[in-house]
């Protein structure tokens, strides 16, 4: 009947109004700073650098692939060198400017040494626009345990792969991590 739709619509809104006081399904807003939606495992945000046991053992060999692949060019890598000026397989400077990073995850894709991964941390607001968001090596370093906590499936796969690799390269006994 023409005109009944008005009452039907009002009944729908009234139901939603009343149920919002009783049922969580009818009050979908999450009160963000107090309660948070648990992050999904595949959620990706800004990149971080991974180390195995102690912060000096970082997996990065400063091959510069990620810096080259990075579409907005937010990664700066300077290779470390020893006293004779011989280049070492570790970075002296590893900066990621989070004000430029666009969270694409290409660095993670291209890294041949499984050294850089996307983090779940997203509350990184700062007051300064330039230096505050330029993260240095020390800020970026996170342990493999942390990585295992946020992305357990990926860690299982990557650790298995790395074990396999070290087994194959066992005879020469020179691991790239030192």
């Amino acid at each position: 009947m023409f005109g009944l739709g008005v009452l039907k619509g009002m009944w729908v809104t009234f139901k939603n109004f009343v149920l919002s006081y009783f049922s969580k399904d009818h009050l979908v807003t999450v009160q963000y700073p107090e309660e948070k939606i648990p992050e999904k495992e595949r959620f990706r945000n800004f990149p971080f650098l991974i180390y195995d046991d102690k912060p000096e053992d970082l997996r990065c060999v400063s091959c510069d692939i990620c810096a080259k692949e990075c579409p907005p060019k937010c990664i700066t890598i300077v290779r470390d060198s020893d006293a004779q000026g011989k280049p070492l397989k570790r970075p002296k400077v590893f900066d990621i400017d989070f004000s430029i990073c666009m969270n694409c995850g290409i660095c993670e894709e291209v890294c041949p040494f499984d050294a850089i991964f996307m983090d779940h941390e997203f509350e990184i607001a700062e007051f300064g626009r330039f230096e505050d968001l330029n993260y240095h090596k020390e800020d970026l370093l996170k342990s493999n345990e942390y990585f295992a906590k946020i992305r357990p499936q990926d860690v299982a796969r990557i650790d298995a792969k790395r074990r396999e690799k070290t087994k194959k390269t066992e005879p020469p006994q020179t691991t790239p991590t030192t």
Partner: peptide
């Protein structure tokens, strides 16, 4: 507040 509740939101709180 009321329109918020109708739309399953909290409204100002």
């Amino acid at each position: 507040k009321l329109v918020g509740r109708i739309q399953n939101r909290f409204g100002p709180n």
